[in-house]
């Protein structure tokens, strides 16, 4: 699995470097304008970081579609690797590359506004909360991508043809998202127990929907792994 991640990162190296360089150069340019543009500079820096994240997230989706629709699949799916290790390596790679871009964007932003926002946040936030944010960051990437990979794989298996498959995947994603959100809300109403994250503010988390999210993640992860290993026809 380690090797799978290594080659995945190597394959996306240029994309990651390109995004990071764009963010760095863009921020350096903004830094020269901090005085004249006032608040405009940090806002633009924020947009830049956001844009970079969107691009790297799309690149993380192609981690899967490249193998499902291109000849490279012949390389991956003939390796003696289980569906679980393929799936896990995909997710870990995505977490690593998204985190790299995120760290670069945030650092550049902090440099740009000379740490003012960071200081403000650090003064209010408790360690527990910070850990929660980091965990949530990882969790969001992993669970969202698992959900999307699942839809892509189902679309690939159920529908023939690249275009039809991809559009189909999107429709599946759309429908399943609605269903999932609906269920999550219903569960939150049924079990209103909350966990308080921060001692002062009212940041809370619903226990029921958290368990629901974890369970769906587990099911989707195993299902996608199984489909990759036993059902995808190249």
């Amino acid at each position: 699995m380690f090797h799978l991640i290594k080659y995945e990162l190597r394959g996306k190296l240029l994309t990651i470097l390109g995004i990071c360089l764009t963010v760095i150069i863009g921020n350096l340019f903004l830094m020269t304008k901090v005085d004249s543009w006032q608040i405009g500079a940090p806002v633009l820096s924020g947009f830049l970081g956001g844009g970079a994240l969107v691009v790297i997230c799309i690149a993380s989706l192609t981690l899967m579609s490249d193998y499902l629709y291109d000849d490279q699949g012949y390389l991956l799916f003939t390796l003696p690797q289980s569906g679980v290790s393929i799936m896990a390596s995909r997710l870990i790679t995505a977490v690593i590359q998204i985190s790299i871009v995120l760290i670069v964007s945030v650092s550049m932003f902090c440099l740009l506004d000379q740490g003012r926002l960071l200081n403000a946040i650090l003064q209010q936030v408790e360690i527990r909360e910070l850990l929660y944010f980091i965990l949530m960051h990882l969790w969001t990437i992993v669970s969202t991508l698992t959900f999307m990979y699942f839809c892509m794989v189902v679309g690939r298996i159920a529908l023939k043809g690249k275009k039809v498959g991809k559009i189909g995947s999107f429709i599946i994603f759309f429908l399943l998202s609605i269903a999932r959100t609906g269920l999550s809300v219903a569960i939150a109403n049924l079990f209103p127990q909350m966990v308080q994250i921060h001692s002062v503010t009212t940041m809370t988390m619903n226990v029921g929907s958290m368990i629901f999210d974890i369970v769906t993640f587990g099911i989707l992860f195993m299902a996608t792994s199984y489909l990759l290993e036993h059902k995808v026809d190249l």
């Binding site: 000849d71 012949y74 003939t78 390796l79 003696p80």
Partner: peptide, 15 residues
Amino acid sequence: VYTKSIVSYLPDTEY
């Protein structure tokens, strides 16, 4: 997984 470890496959594609 097992058979893939003992089968060496040359596909007809540029993989």
